[in-house]
């Protein structure tokens, strides 16, 4: 039973990682930027969502406002920061992105306070769903379900809509896509918007799970997010999804079995190093 519990929480966390870091994959695929400031969008979504939820009493309203806030901020980050330094060597955008993360995290601390916000009437707090001998946290089901639905929608768009085709074309051959009349700039904004929206949803879900959002909540995904996109292959969505699940499950079992010797981040680190030593170019192959 213990192992089943570990598996369930691992899968739930894996789905959550996938949803939270999809924006990183989209951005990395298009611009080759390790967009670590994405973690701040996750926290922004959580703060705005919880604040509006507490004030209005409606989770749906909170979620919508959170998504809007994250989308606006994500597009602003692209326009104000990345656009002018795309031609620089990769560590320049990476450090600029880190600067944005530090700036926003400290901004959250100043605006919302060091202790962050608590969810006032949390419908999922301590709610369990029981089948026979199993008892699953409802929030895990919501996390996994939300992630799978939003990913399915995204995958559908990427595969069947004209915008999705434009996105895929731009990822594999940016110049050629532009020559065929794809508006590359628009594709970039769409990627930042979609990724930021997913991060905001993930942020709100994690805030509901912890019943709390803090200025540093985003650290849960910031560094692991980078690991996931790189492991998943260059901007490859399926690869990133598999990498997220692997990471979630590895962490969950690692804590359960070796938690006395190493902590959660170190287990993720071991999983990462081992995978990269076996597959030096990530699990998923780049789409060319």
């Amino acid at each position: 039973m213990y192992y089943v519990d570990l598996l369930i929480s691992g899968v739930a966390f894996g789905c959550l990682y996938a949803m939270a870091t999809m924006g990183l994959t989209l951005v990395y695929g298009l611009l080759r930027i390790l967009h670590i400031a994405h973690a701040a969008l996750f926290t922004l979504g959580a703060f705005v969502g919880v604040w509006v939820f507490n004030a209005s009493g409606s989770l749906i309203v909170g979620l919508i406002v959170a998504i809007l806030a994250a989308v606006v901020m994500g597009c602003l980050i692209y326009r104000l920061i990345y656009e002018s330094i795309l031609s620089q060597p990769p560590y320049v955008p990476l450090l600029a992105s880190l600067g944005v993360l530090i700036f926003l995290q400290d901004g959250f601390r100043i605006v919302f306070g060091e202790e962050g916000l608590t969810v006032r009437h949390n419908p999922f707090y301590m709610a369990n769903f029981t089948i026979g001998a199993f008892s699953i946290n409802v929030i895990y089901i919501v996390m996994a379900g939300g992630a799978l639905i939003s990913m399915a929608v995204l995958a559908f768009f990427a595969n069947y809509s004209r915008h999705g085709i434009a996105w895929r074309a731009t990822v594999s051959r940016p110049l050629l896509a532009a020559n065929f009349g794809v508006n590359v700039i628009q594709v970039r904004y769409a990627a930042f918007a979609a990724g930021s929206a997913l991060a905001a949803i993930a942020g709100v879900l994690v805030a509901l799970m912890n019943n709390l959002v803090e200025p540093h909540s985003g650290e849960l995904i910031s560094y692991k997010g980078l690991a996931i996109i790189v492991l998943g292959g260059l901007g490859n969505m399926q690869g990133a999804f598999i990498a997220s699940l692997v990471l979630g499950i590895a962490e969950s079992f690692g804590i359960g079995l070796a938690g006395r010797y190493v902590d959660r981040d170190a287990i993720a680190a071991v999983a990462l190093i081992a995978t990269l030593m076996i597959f030096p170019n990530g699990i998923g192959r780049a789409r060319t």
């Binding site: 990476l94 980078l226 790189v230 170190a266 071991v270 990462l272 030096p280």
Partner: peptide, 15 residues
């Protein structure tokens, strides 16, 4: 990939 590997080494050490 190297940036991420070294990042993981840092976390491994602290952990």
């Amino acid at each position: 990939f190297l940036a991420i590997t070294t990042l993981a080494v840092g976390f491994l050490f602290v952990g």
